Amino acid sequence: MSLYILLPAIAIAALALASLPALSAIGLSALPLAILLGMVAGHLVPVCHSTGEQWFSRFSQQKLLRAGIILFGFSLNFQQIAAVGWQALLLDGIVISTTFLLGTWLGIKLFKLEPNVAMLTSVGSAICGAAAVMATEAVLKPKQRDVTVAVATVVLFGTLAMFSYPLLYAFSGMSELAYGIFIGSTVHEVAQAVAAGQAIGEQALQNAVIVKLMRVMLLAPFIVLLSYVVSKKQSAKDNGHRLVIPWFVAGFVASAGINTWLPLPELLSSTFHFGSQLSLAMAMAALGLNTRWSTIRAAGAKPLMLAGLLFVLLMVGGFGLNHLLIAKA
């Protein structure tokens, strides 16, 4: 089957499945579904790999991904930050920096992973799951296998977080409002944070979504900073220094700014949202289609161990930070 037909078909199928109440209730969003469907199709459906189709696969995985992230910015606005206070923004910043730095260090020093695998796994846990992994790929230029392994780990442990957080609420001693902030600041994917918050209550859901979207917005400065660090290391080799900021970061911030100061008509906003989801789903479908179970098995248990350790760090460390920084509502 031609990739020109298969990739859009997988993306549309993932969007349709994600809208089913049974799947949305357990936090399965279109992006993880697109990856899974792509992986299944890659093993079961004979795919022609002509030069043009290979180009289309790379275009979907790279250009459409960045376009989807820019369009996703229209779903955010800077007023959401003010709604929960500067403490929540500080909390998100600490969670992201601590998870990424500690995860990268542990991955390289303790688990002896390749730096790209350690960084991609850590950034997926720290910010927003698969989307953060794919955005960071634009800076690191890793192997396909590294991206696949990182996405698989964050989907696995993000799903575990989605089910475990509601179960732990009764033992937390936190108010519903405060627990929503805890969910938003530590759960991996946006859909998973929504599902976990919804299982507790409306107030928890609202704060979980706002704080989680704040974490997503911090992806832009993170990518800029990482690009600076990577370019600085590169300058040691060629005696030059050139900071390359991925173009989609500026687009992401600009679209969020437009949505803040120039509210869009509902029809246009819905169109951008659908375009974002379709573009991102096609990117994930292309990733899944090029993924083989043998690739994940070959990576071994160490990436899973790192992701599991970060899952515990987010839950335990995030709980402590929330008690320290967020006033009990």
Results as ranks from 00 to 15, higher is better:
V45F: 02
E266Y: 14
T98R: 08
G308D: 13
G158M: 00
W247D: 07
L37C: 04
H241M: 15
A250Y: 15
G52T: 09
A150E: 00
A281G: 02
A22T: 14
A254F: 15
W247I: 08
M214C: 09
S2M: 07
F59T: 13
S125K: 04
S24W: 09
Y4A: 11
T291V: 07
T295W: 08
E189T: 08
G73C: 02
A135H: 00
L90Y: 10
G107N: 00
V194F: 09
Y179A: 01
F252C: 06
V253M: 13
V45E: 03
S125D: 06
T153W: 00
D238S: 01
F163K: 08
F311S: 06
S57I: 05
V151C: 02
F222A: 11
L64R: 08
T104C: 13
A118F: 01
N207Y: 14
L314I: 07
A307Q: 12
V224N: 14
G38T: 02
A14W: 07
V147I: 02
C48N: 14
I181A: 05
R66L: 06
H273G: 10
L156I: 12
L101P: 09
A199E: 08
P166Q: 02
T159F: 09
E189P: 11
S57L: 04
L262F: 15
L17V: 05
K112P: 05
G320L: 05
M214I: 13
K328F: 12
I69K: 01
D92P: 05
G42I: 06
L106N: 05
M284H: 09
I200P: 07
I127P: 06
A118C: 01
K302R: 15
S185G: 11
G197V: 02
F252I: 11
G184R: 05
Y4V: 11
G288L: 00
K141Q: 02
I245Y: 07
G173N: 03
G201L: 06
G52Y: 02
G300Y: 06
L140G: 00
K109P: 03
F157W: 04
A301Y: 12
A329Y: 12
I183K: 00
S175N: 04
L304C: 08
L226C: 04
C48L: 15
L33D: 10
G184H: 04
L6P: 05
K233T: 13
S164E: 10
E176H: 09
W105I: 13
I181F: 11
S185H: 11
A41H: 07
V155H: 03
E189S: 11
S125R: 06
G318H: 01
A208G: 03
G300E: 04
D146H: 14
I10C: 00
V216P: 04
K212T: 01
L6H: 02
V249W: 04
L167V: 15
A9H: 03
G257N: 09
L264G: 08
L23I: 15
I258N: 07
A236V: 14
G73W: 07
E189V: 13
N77M: 10
S255L: 14
R292Y: 11
Q198D: 13
F319E: 10
A126V: 09
M1L: 12
L289A: 02
